[in-house]
Write a protein that binds this DNA or RNA. Structure first.
Length: 535
DNA sequence: AGGCCGGTTGGGAGC
DNA sequence: CGCTCCCAACCGGCC
């Protein structure tokens, strides 16, 4: 046999899973098994996931999210094995492992889903360069979002839509979202081969292995309410798609932040990891709604998908989107440094039962309702504690299963009235707001067992209960349950004034810096800000 | 240029 | 309970 022919047979394609942990609607994966070599043959396929084997503090993920990832990997591996291949989990950093893989496997094609987050872009550029050096063709596809965020900006004549309504009008002028691609029921047999199918070097780590690796003690795990993986994602989706009238009537602001069972779909973790495709979700909703009367964006379910697209679009086009300084759309606010209050907020010990219950649910379960996020975010920032939204973002980044870079930063700016939302005089009361949907405080009782016996009329404000009632309930403020870190009635009006001032100085600085920069040479940071002036 | 409109989800008073 | 209006205060988009 011709040795050249033999070499060609072993030309390999790698599909690199990062997000997009699914086989349905995965156009980049499809390329990896459909494209052919220059000799017209199929590549041998190696689907990989790269796992950093070291404990790195800068990857801010709590154990719930590591578990979700591990479950998603197991599911992906299982699905791939049914198709005759497997998931090759590679231990290392992408920039370290790729050169070895390229050589070892005679790789000629690398496919992955396009990622718009800055750290991922930097990583992917680096890998593209490496690939070029090794003669590997790279193919990226947009599939994490329904729209290509760059095309949205282009459709708006190069400027970033800064309001949701504007965003809607822009996408209305664009073609419909891409139709989802069904998952393959089989792969071309020429793509498949036996190499390493049983090599445990590439196995998905067990949960214990992974958690220990990341510096956690597996015994601290709480019960799993939202198991990861594509299969779970599709199952969960279909559960909700069966409820046609619920889908048609869905209005986000009318759902409850403090019901004992989630009042919304909890599909966000699956969207974050790409276990569920946004396009697939979108077209399923269209199908279910059909010609029936239904709610509309921004409050409808489809409206929620558009919010995601909106934040991805702005996030991809705005420098320093996840920071205040150097972020051209962000109000510059002199937030306090208050480690004690931050610690109390982070651990659900502010003394405000509604706030604390939410923060405890977040830590235990990895998911809280959108309006619950509003409540605690407003409380941390402009409402009460006057602590930077970046601190809150970091806590959410660690604890949320669905921690999603664009939406996390976008919503934190929204809630702190730093961008997108500006009616800063609308403040959530940490006492009153929750009562609207849970008068008797059952939600608080569930997440703060110390308060379980508290009478209804005091459950939202235990520090006001007379000592006798506190004692009867077996919970004395300051002993079993902390005193409040701040007095809402005292601070929120003061904070509104401070916010007003921050707006004025931000505006003044913006005008000032554009005239100043004529005289003084601007720093590189300022240059970036100016370049992305968003118009 | 400047004014008007509307903004996914506030709270409270008054009817 | 549901509705309207007010609250000093905002902004982006549009005309």
């Amino acid at each position: 046999m011709n040795p050249n022919k033999k070499d060609r047979c072993h030309e390999t394609s790698i599909h690199w899973f990062r997000k997009g942990m699914r086989l349905h609607d995965n156009p980049a994966f499809k390329l990896s098994y459909e494209l052919k070599t220059c000799c017209g043959e199929y590549y041998k396929l190696r689907p990989i996931y790269i796992l950093d084997p070291y404990f790195r503090k800068y990857i801010r993920a709590g154990m719930n999210r590591w578990r979700f990832l591990q479950q998603s990997l197991v599911d992906l591996d299982l699905t791939l094995r049914k198709l005759g291949t497997r998931l090759y989990v590679i231990r290392g950093l992408p920039e370290d492992v790729f050169p070895d893989l390229f050589k070892k496997w005679n790789v000629k094609l690398l496919t992955f889903e396009l990622d718009t987050e800055p750290y991922a872009r930097k990583r992917d550029e680096q890998i593209e360069t490496l690939a070029r050096q090794h003669g590997v063709k790279v193919d990226q596809k947009v599939s994490h979002t329904m729209y290509n965020t760059e095309l949205v900006v282009r459709a708006n004549r190069g400027s970033v839509p800064m309001t949701y309504q504007k965003f809607l009008s822009v996408i209305n002028s664009m073609p419909d979202p891409r139709q989802p691609i069904p998952a393959p029921d089989k792969l071309p047999s020429e793509c498949l081969f036996d190499d390493d199918l049983n090599n445990c070097e590439y196995d998905v780590p067990t949960l214990n292995e992974l958690l220990t690796l990341k510096g956690f003690d597996p015994v601290d795990l709480k019960p799993c309410l939202y198991p990861g993986g594509e299969k779970e994602a599709l199952k969960r989706l279909e559960e909700y798609m069966e409820k046609k009238s619920w889908v048609c009537k869905f209005e986000k602001p009318d759902t409850s932040p403090n019901s004992l069972k989630p009042s919304t779909t909890v599909l966000s973790p699956y969207m974050k990891f790409g276990c569920l495709s946004a396009s697939h979700f979108y077209y399923r909703l269209k199908e279910v709604i059909g010609n029936s009367p239904h709610t509309k964006p921004p409050v409808s379910l489809i409206g929620q998908l558009y919010w995601r697209e909106f934040y991805y679009t702005v996030g991809a086009a705005t420098p320093n989107f996840d920071k205040m300084v150097g972020n051209p759309i962000c109000c510059q606010v002199p937030w306090d440094d208050n480690p004690v209050a931050l610690e109390a907020w982070t651990n659900g010990k502010t003394g405000y039962p509604f706030i604390d219950a939410i923060m405890r649910q977040l830590r235990d379960e990895g998911w809280i309702h959108h309006l619950a996020r509003h409540s605690v975010a407003c409380f941390l920032t402009r409402g009460d504690l006057w602590i930077s939204w970046e601190k809150g973002l970091a806590v959410f980044e660690e604890l949320l299963l669905d921690a999603d870079w664009s939406m996390n930063a976008g919503n934190w700016m929204w809630l702190s009235a730093s961008a997108f939302f500006h009616q800063f005089f609308r403040v959530y009361s940490p006492v009153v707001f929750g009562k609207k949907t849970d008068k008797s405080g059952d939600y608080i009782r569930k997440y703060i067992p110390e308060l379980a016996k508290y009478p209804d009329q005091y459950i939202y404000e235990p520090w006001l209960a007379p000592k006798s009632i506190q004692e009867r309930a077996g919970c004395v403020v300051g002993i079993h349950y902390p005193k409040r870190v701040v007095i809402h009635e005292d601070v929120y009006k003061i904070n509104i004034n401070k916010m007003s001032l921050a707006y004025k100085t931000t505006k003044a600085d913006k005008c000032g810096s554009s005239t100043k920069s004529k005289n003084a040479p601007s720093s590189s940071n300022e240059k970036n800000v100016k370049k992305a002036k968003h118009k």
